[in-house]
């Protein structure tokens, strides 16, 4: 495992752990998702840089475009949840439990 591989894996797993265990605000969950996506961006761009393959040079940008769409959908949901529930705490999302 190269140092680059280790660092982006560690960044991704830290983001995943944050998403799974740190559950107070919706915004922090979205930030963790974005962190995971950025570590994947590093991974893809490093892969195409190391292999010097032209055909893979566009993949990081495609990933970034999709993660931007995802982040904007997440922020829209943050606004919607704040308007309907009053807060953005994830604890308040409990209407559907049984």
């Amino acid at each position: 495992m190269t140092p680059v591989h280790f660092s982006f894996s560690a960044a991704f797993i830290l983001g995943l752990m944050g998403l799974a265990f740190h559950r107070t605000h919706l915004l922090s969950a979205l930030l963790c998702l974005e962190g995971m996506m950025l570590s994947l961006f590093i991974a893809l761009s490093m892969w195409s840089l190391q292999l010097e393959s032209m055909s893979y040079a566009t993949t990081p940008v495609l990933l970034l475009a999709f993660s931007a769409c995802e982040a904007s959908a997440g922020l829209a949901l943050l606004v919607a949840a704040t308007r309907t529930h009053g807060t953005s705490h994830l604890q308040n999302l409990n209407l559907l439990q049984c």
Binding site: T2, H5, S9, F12, L16, L19, L26, A29, L33, M36, M37, S39, L40, A43, L44, W47, L63, E70, A73, G74, L77, A80, A81, T84, H85, L93, L95, L96
Partner: peptide
């Protein structure tokens, strides 16, 4: 409120799952 809550939960799970899929395939590629 219930629809927004369901959408938020769905979004969080599906986005996490998709990111995990891409992470696993990137690791495989590395």
């Amino acid at each position: 409120p219930r629809a927004v809550e369901a959408t938020t939960k769905y979004f969080l799970t599906q986005a996490t799952a998709a990111a995990m899929i891409l992470f696993a395939s990137t690791t495989n590629a590395w």
